[in-house]
Design a protein around this nucleic acid. Sequence first.
DNA 1: CTGAAAGCGCTTACAG
DNA 2: CTGAAAGCGCTTACAG
Lengths: 340, 340
Amino acid sequence: MQGKSTLKDLAKILNLSVSTVSKAINDSSEISERTKIKVRNVANLNNYSPNRLAQSLKANKTKTIGVIIPDVMSHFFAKAIHGIETKAIELGYNVVICLSNESLKKETESINTLINGSVDGLIISLSKETQTLQSYDHFESVLDYKLPLVLFDRISKRFSCDKINLDDKLASAEATNHLIKTGCKNIVFLSTMSGTSVGEKRRSGYSIAIKLDDLKERIVNIPNYGLFESTLIEVLKNETVDGIVAANELSAITAIKYALKHGYKIPQDISVIGFTNGILSENFIPSLTVVDQHAEEQGELAAQTLINRIEKKTTAEPVSIILKTTIVERESTRPIYYAK
Amino acid sequence: MQGKSTLKDLAKILNLSVSTVSKAINDSSEISERTKIKVRNVANLNNYSPNRLAQSLKANKTKTIGVIIPDVMSHFFAKAIHGIETKAIELGYNVVICLSNESLKKETESINTLINGSVDGLIISLSKETQTLQSYDHFESVLDYKLPLVLFDRISKRFSCDKINLDDKLASAEATNHLIKTGCKNIVFLSTMSGTSVGEKRRSGYSIAIKLDDLKERIVNIPNYGLFESTLIEVLKNETVDGIVAANELSAITAIKYALKHGYKIPQDISVIGFTNGILSENFIPSLTVVDQHAEEQGELAAQTLINRIEKKTTAEPVSIILKTTIVERESTRPIYYAK
DNA sequence: CTGAAAGCGCTTACAG
DNA sequence: CTGAAAGCGCTTACAG
């Protein structure tokens, strides 16, 4: 009744061997029904439950997966975690989460603490620093150990493993096209995240769509949120702008905010489309048209893919899944039939 | 080079005993410098790192703490997790997170998977269902095992353990007072979370402040977000209302949204104050005056308290810490000097 | 300075 | 049907 009881404790109480008790608890066919009942009673009385650590050590598997993400406070990652957790539990796995806080150093540390037998596999979304520095040495041990690894959302081509992400370039091209179809002619791409692979792809998708339609390309990089208002308004004052593709949710909302403040009407004067279907997009006035990245689905897929790999249910070659995005139309863009 | 190497592997390569290798790696003073160097070299070459599971089993501690929260997608809990993680890592602990999704069943399962040796202690914020059902049987094993436990934010008086929370009643009374000081006379308490301990306390704090000022008490419970607009507008149409204390962030924002839609001016006609200083409060137009619950600080404190308990650095009696909240003034309320 | 032995809590092939 | 033994990967008191 006090502290945790072990098989040994039960064996002593029952006057049986540890082996017998273990088998009885695991409902082995070798053990008589009578003994099983006795053992189970004593086990329940003593609140026995097997030590997971010992089981894991013995079985050489932990039924735990490790997740390393840059940030919990972003809606995208919170949702992705939710998806990972749901799927993992459904498949009988636990989830350990570490935060890299966008730092290469913390990402490295997190990997090191997790790979030493604590988890059966890893789901990682790379930190900004890792991506800008292109430094991947800390993945060597993971690959050496042949520890199953799934990268999602912020991935790298530099090494081979299972990967889940979405076609950000295509998504951004589609977002741009959406604005074009609502009649926009002068579309700006607004980014606060130049440098990340995701930001880069979105910029490039925008450019492709713009060029296909023979429109004028215009990229505005905002170095930080402190300079947001001045940078944006300067552009709106001096150039003709009737559409904005913003590289993420907060920059889209912030753009709308300052545009409204300076007297522009959304979407009548300027249409705005953003990425990530978060709580802000849904509740802001006007609500924001966004590219939904299916965060939860990405999470579920990542978990499923990892567990398939752990349980060797996949082909030897790395899996690479590219999800389709969808556009959620709301009030920050005009309806499509406005076109022409 | 392939798979994980163990002490045994190194010992064989080095022609030494496992004990010697172990001691060399742990830099024991018993071992000669020469041997240490040789061992370290081979260890590095083979990418050796000790199996955490085996270490934990041996040492009977895991240097891991378990966290069970109702929801990651809420800004409050995401921030709290961030605080827990930061402090835990700083003190040399890892963090395992499980989600209860507001369900008693999942909370029970999470506890059961975590207490079997995987963690040295638990930080929990109770699920809604646990609180409404007042069912705490699933905590018996935690208490029996004498596993260190810290409850935060959503706590219970029904059993004894370390607790961190804030004085929600006082906070709500202060929020109400804030509105009074800006000149509001007809203040409504708006809740979508009746039933939770937190919702109840906020209601009661509101009532106290209202009665102290001899104003009229008016509680509006919104059964679900689908009925938000009709319920709210009915009240606004038929009664005089110049202030709203909303029980959480989203209900505050939603109230503003519908009030604006129906022609009310915020804060000129109606002032609104909410709880939780999240991304919505900050970015909405008008931005929302809120009671900041110091989520990150609560998380850090919870981690610190738990680790103190684990490492027996605290008195035997349970610690109970009550944090002060602060009011963040923004655009949804009038300035205080308007009063009188 | 090095090593053999015991033990953390479990499981399982093997004997009886 | 029950039990003794070995082993998962580590650490550490004890001998030499």
